[in-house]
Design a binder for these strands. Structure first.
Lengths: 202, 202, 202, 202
DNA sequence: AATGAATGAGCCTTCATTCAT
DNA sequence: GATGAATGAAGGCTCATTCAT
């Protein structure tokens, strides 16, 4: 989706235009949601024509898809990069909490969008997202498996790890992003990291 | 909101009609979201006329508001009733997790709606919701204050309690409701209750 | 398609409105073709709102479909009614030419539309049209079969009858309707009827 | 129309490009009609750039015009060439039917386009077409006039000749091209030629 | 209370065409 | 000659809401 003709690289000007559109769209989506944002909103924010939007992205959902796929991949890659620098289970679990917190603070708008559930992806994008998610979950599990095996991390129902480790920080970030309270998650980062480790340590 | 003219009780027939509309609307909202549901969808599902919908609820948002205000109050009342039967902080914290889990399993559609974030309430409804939330949070804090004071529950940033206690079970329920995994939350109820208690005990 | 709820008859007012829309649409279609006619054109000609159009017909094509299905059925029924009053093959063949000519002169706009080929029917309408056509062709063949069997009408490849009998008058009408020449087909009706009979008589 | 600058012959490369575009456009037009074909459809089918299309043809209609003018002239020239080899009225009338049949079978896509009525030509092209048509009709009438004068061909209203002679084969070809029936017109060529002659012979 | 036809602002999208490179 | 990004008018359609019956 990043290019209509993958065999020929896009010119820099094209990439710049696309990037500026994505930036503008992100601001709109974060403010009013995807459903609450009109093509005209994006077009005005990006200072381009409607035709240009469709030329580059094919549809309104096409913009959201590219934005979110890029965003999720960015989040995932950052998480995996962080994990690879960890020596053991404890560092890893705490890194997940910390990285999620840091990334959300650096990418507030994107985080806001990823939390909202009003996105309706096309079949193609849904497949791509599933693939990305599968790969990511696979990598995560592969990373933690040794720590579980050696007993450093508790054996739990597989579906329980993510909620126990990430549930609190995600909930905190969600509330912070939606303005429920003013305190940035940095304040509770280590507290939640410790709690996460306590919840899953062997 | 349950009646337009509190001085004259509504006839049972009217209440039945309203209840059947709310039921139909809930099913639609749970399936397609509030934004994704049209008045016609509800009308068809409730097997009534459009005029009737407007006669009873005034607007589409009026339906959502009545539904969600009732739902939140039901959830809140159940939670407080449960808490009042608890003797100490540990029982209380675990009851919060357990009750949230049980309620969500008994009210899947409503839980799905409450998780979604695409609802835009009118000024009047927003005020009513804020009031309800304020009262509820006040009652919750009043209940837990003694346990914090006596040291049974840790002293933490106020914004941290809810995420630490409810974050994991909420995240688990959300994933279960959206079909990410098939295992109902009952399976992890006590596990998550224990983790919640560990996270906030003194 | 004539009604959204076939189990309940439409009120006269509704039928009148639909009829006036169909009338207006026919005028537009005859003038500019279906593709060349916009919903706004019809709306202005019918003096109603866009919403009303969609309320009654569902889509622009829905209007065209109802119009053409009604039109074709009208043509077919008239043809069969005429045939049933014929005593032999010769009268029948000549009646086909004459009736086609008369109907086209009485329904110029509809005839113009039926000649144009720029209509894209929905699956449902296409199925309905196929059914109508099948029934009509079946009735026509059933009518002529005895005359072929008794030798009054020639045995020919089945696909040849319609072009031989109707081809000339259709071509003449088409040219007249599109303004290629000013002489109405009444002038050549009997000439073409005789030619048709000559072409297929036994 | 074949060249923008008649004083300087186009290079073969240019002609090849134009020819390949016309070929691609014809395929598109035959499949989806002129209105149903977009510039992008042609561009993709011709494997060239949009700019190139406009460089060579000026507009979408420019492509259709060149294609159809060439096509009609090809049809007309073939017809006249055939007629000139006929010795009398009977041979001539039958040649018209036969040639139309043969040409349509050899140029199915073009025939399909010429049958469709959704083409809206520009003033310049319309004038050119009228001129072509006038010349062609003039030549045809000039050819047949002697046979009418000598009594070999009946005296009929001028507008009746074409429908009587060509109507059946045209209708047959139209139905065959649109898939209504599978039998190619070659099967009925002589049958229809005989019928045509019967219809107009003196 | 009930009904559903009527309304029209606003949305997403298409597509022929232009033009700078 | 070739390229394709940019343009924006115009089209079909949705949908919450009103109101006469």
């Amino acid at each position: 989706m990043a290019s209509r003709n993958p065999s020929r690289p896009e010119r820099p000007a094209t990439l710049e235009r696309k990037a500026s559109v994505l930036e503008a769209a992100l601001a709109c989506f974060a403010k009013n949601g995807v459903d609450g944002t009109t093509i005209q909103d994006i077009q005005r924010a990006a200072n381009c024509s409607i035709g240009s939007l469709y030329h580059h992205f094919g549809s309104k959902d096409g913009i959201a898809e590219e934005l979110f796929i890029d965003g999720i991949q960015n989040l995932n890659h950052g998480m995996l990069a962080k994990l690879r620098r960890c020596k053991n289970g404890e560092e890893s679990v705490k890194a997940v909490v910390g990285q999620y917190c840091d990334w959300s603070m650096r990418n507030k708008d994107l985080a806001r969008c990823l939390h909202s559930r009003d996105i309706e992806f096309s079949g193609e994008a849904r497949a791509r997202l599933k693939e990305i998610h599968r790969d990511y979950i696979g990598a995560i599990y592969a990373w933690f498996a040794p720590f579980v095996e050696c007993g450093e991390v508790r054996v739990l129902p597989v579906d329980a790890y993510v909620p126990l480790i990430s549930g609190p920080i995600q909930e905190y970030v969600r509330r912070w992003l939606s303005g429920h309270h003013p305190n940035p998650p940095a304040k509770v980062k280590t507290l939640f990291a410790d709690a996460a480790w306590n919840a899953v340590k062997g």
